[in-house]
Amino acid sequence: MVNYISAAAIPFIILGIIIYGLIEKNKVYDSFLEGAKEGIEIVFKMFPTLVGIFLAVGALRSSGVIELIVKIVEPMTKMLSIPSEIMPLALLRPISGSASMAVAVDIMKNYGVDTFVGLITSTIMGSTETTFYTIAIYTSAVGIKKTRGILVAALLADFAGMIASVIIWRIMSTSFC
C-alpha cells in the first residue's frame, strides 16, 4: 500500500500540476523550459562541490580511514541504533547543503540506494535543512546579533529528524521483510 502510493505519487503530481496550470491559462511549456534551464545551473553549481567532496571522501575511504572511524564510533552508534555508515552525513548535514548532498550520493552509491542505509540517507536528506546556513542568512539579513540559542533548538530538531528517519525505516523494514 505504502509502495503503491509512493509509486503513483509522481505521475499524479506531475499530471495535477500541468492540468492546474492549464486551468489558470498559463503557458505551461514555457514555464517548464524556464525552470528546466535553472536546473542546469543547479547541477553546474553542484559539480565543483561533487568533485571536491568526492575527492576528500574517496581519499578517506580508499585509505581505510572511514573503516577505522566507523569501528571507533560503532559502540556509540549501536547504543543509539544508528547505522555507523551514515555518521559522516549526520555530522556534515547542518553545515553544508551541497557537501552533505555529495556525501549522501557517495553513501547511496557505495551501499546501494534501496538498502536500509540508502533509504535512511535519502530520508535524512529530505527531512533536514542546512541549519547553519539558514540561521546565518536570515539573521544577517536584518542585522541580528543575538540569536538566543536557537541554534541549539534547530540542531535538536535535526537530530530528532535523523533519529526518526532511522526508527521509521527500522519499523518499515521489519514489517515488510
Binding site: 514555464s31 517548464f32 523550459l33 525552470g35 536546473g39 547541477v43
Partner: peptide
C-alpha cells in the same frame, strides 16, 4: 533535476 525544476516552475506561475 531539470525535470523537477521545470515542473515546479509551472507551480510557481499559478
Amino acid at each position: 533535476i531539470c525535470l523537477w525544476n521545470g515542473i515546479m516552475e509551472i507551480v510557481k506561475k499559478t
